[in-house]
Simulated assay, not measured.
Amino acid sequence: MNQIMIRGVGMQYIYGTADIMRQEDCVVVLGNFDGVHKGHQRLFQVAKDRAKANGLRTVVFSFYPHPTWVIGDNRKALIMSRRDKKQVIGEMGIDELIEYPFTRTFAAISPETFFVDILMKRLKAKILVVGSNYYFGKGKTGNPKYLRQLGEKYNIEVCIVDAVKIGGSMISSSSIRKLILEGNIEKANEMLGHPYMIVGNVVQGKQLGRTIGFPTINLIADPDRVYPPNGVYATVVRVYSKTYRGMTNIGVNPTVSGQRKMIETHIFNYDADIYGEAVEVYFYHYVRPEQKFKDINALKAQIQQDKWHVQEFFANPINLFANDK
């Protein structure tokens, strides 16, 4: 069995195997949890409360790969990488995260088989926590009402948690993906409960920014992630556990005939060599779309304007979360 402890948070992480046989009763939270948004966070809190009241451990049961990558013809790009998701879930005080292999064979099992063979026998679930829009089993034929019926049949407590809403809009991973694709970073962050982020290791770029006074750190775009529109954003960057403000360009650098999509960040008041190091880039505000300029001088002038815009944005404390990274 593949399992590790998530550094700094003490959560057990089990992945890449269907050979799971827990020995102790637990509270299980079910879902995909892409983005780990405010709705997911409420599920985790309910699970932790029920676990504390009953002296049980909390187990988040999710899947990898994402079900849409295996079945159907609408492969979803993800809000959050696999690595980031497990780190964020661990920081929320969950005891165990299980990423169960999602295969066509697994997708074909009936809802009751999933309930009995996986949840009861393998996970030792005594309490289940799900959202009101949770579906499971072959063809998504299992729903919360049926889950509750199974719970009554097999003496398992089932907690169905209503969706969280903001301004009358239900929070969901799908709605957040749409907001990110539209460039509505502030609204996406409000639903997430934390800033949309991109995490990766710094790679060598063309070093054009350095020649015009705006050195950047560069990350390669992951084809499995959802990204906001190409353009410039106000961001906060974490490097070596310290945070800095900056501005990030997502795009292909059309002014210099770029081809590959990159995430390039100019960190304010920072110019260290951090090639190969892991960095976290948190997005707060969309500044402008990507543009092709007539020459490098025009590009440089616009970047200076962008920097002033971002500095003005961050000068207002209301534009940063209270839990700013």
Rank of each mutant, 00 (worst) to 15 (best):
L147S: 14
Y270V: 05
K300Q: 06
F61H: 11
T248Q: 14
M170C: 11
V129S: 03
N32M: 12
G151W: 11
G142M: 04
P111A: 10
L219C: 12
L147E: 09
I79D: 03
F106W: 00
Y282M: 13
F44G: 14
N201A: 01
P195C: 15
Q87K: 12
D49F: 03
I118K: 01
I94N: 02
V27N: 14
N230F: 07
N253K: 06
K124R: 14
G131K: 00
N218K: 03
A51L: 01
Y15F: 08
S172V: 13
P229L: 02
L181M: 13
R57E: 12
G258W: 04
F321E: 11
D73T: 15
P215T: 00
G258K: 06
G10I: 08
P65L: 11
A234K: 10
V199L: 13
R260C: 09
M80Q: 05
M191N: 05
E190H: 05
V116D: 05
D222I: 02
Q302Y: 11
G90M: 03
D324V: 12
G167C: 13
I6D: 01
K124W: 09
R288F: 06
I212Y: 07
N319R: 01
M262G: 03
H266C: 07
W69H: 15
T243W: 05
I6Y: 04
K294P: 05
A315V: 10
H66G: 04
C26R: 04
V59G: 03
I217T: 09
A272T: 11
V9C: 00
I109M: 02
K48F: 02
V232H: 08
I220Q: 02
G213A: 05
W69E: 14
S174A: 09
G39A: 04
N253S: 10
Q207N: 12
Q12W: 14
H309L: 11
G213L: 04
H285R: 01
S110I: 07
A322F: 15
G142K: 02
Q45N: 01
G251A: 07
S257C: 08
N249H: 09
M80R: 00
S173H: 12
F61D: 02
V60I: 08
D222N: 08
E96K: 00
Y270S: 02
Y135D: 15
A53H: 08
M197S: 15
M11K: 03
K140M: 14
Y227V: 09
Y13K: 06
V46M: 01
